[in-house]
């Protein structure tokens, strides 16, 4: 996988964030135009036979998308698993705002905090799993 651009990274973080987290980060709703109202559809999820072989269709997943435009013309997009229309619109607004903001801006830092929280949850889950690491002994048959 190619390293992610900052925009890909914040979109990934927003896709995993809750609506409340995004709403808190965005604060008051900025003036905007909804170009594509939040819409739920599906994406067909593909796997590969054996993990690395021939592609096949595993099944679909619900996805919600939204496109907004700020008064300065900047467009914001949101694509995320699930069916949360409110979250889609707020995430699209953040995507638009973040594109105009410096990398150390307030919103960017807020997204970084969300990303850190997600990473911490992931680490905790990983360490809980690691606590179940096992070394089985093999007994010699007939000994």
């Amino acid at each position: 996988m190619n390293p992610k651009t900052p925009r890909q990274q914040w979109m990934a973080t927003l896709a995993r964030a809750s609506r409340d987290e995004i709403a808190t980060l965005l604060g008051a709703l900025p003036e905007h135009e909804v170009l594509k109202a939040p819409e739920t559809g599906t994406v067909m999820v593909e796997g590969r036979a054996g993990g690395a072989g021939r592609r096949f269709n595993l099944g679909e997943a619900t996805v919600t998308r939204c496109v907004v435009r700020l008064p300065n013309g900047r467009m914001g997009f949101s694509y995320a698993l699930g069916r949360d229309h409110g979250k889609a619109r707020l995430a699209a607004l953040l995507d638009a705002r973040l594109q105009d903001e410096a990398t150390d801006g307030e919103l960017a830092q807020g997204v970084a905090t969300l990303a850190a929280r997600q990473a911490a949850a992931r680490d905790l889950a990983s360490r809980k799993a690691a606590a179940t690491k096992v070394d089985f002994f093999t007994l010699v048959r007939g000994a």
């Binding site: 996988m1 819409e39 739920t40 559809g41 599906t42 994406v43 067909m44 999820v45 593909e46 796997g47 590969r48 993990g51 690395a52 592609r55 269709n57 595993l58 679909e60 997943a61 619900t62 996805v63 998308r65 992931r122 889950a125 990983s126 799993a129 179940t132 070394d135 089985f136 093999t138």
Partner: peptide, 27 residues
């Protein structure tokens, strides 16, 4: 009833955040 937006990139299960992983072939 839902529109299909398209197909995902093929999943890469080697990058899975593992919660469980066992093998009966290798200790």
């Amino acid at each position: 009833t839902l529109p299909r937006f398209g197909s995902s990139q093929p999943l890469d299960t080697a990058t899975m955040a593992i919660r469980r992983r066992v093998s009966a072939t290798y200790k």
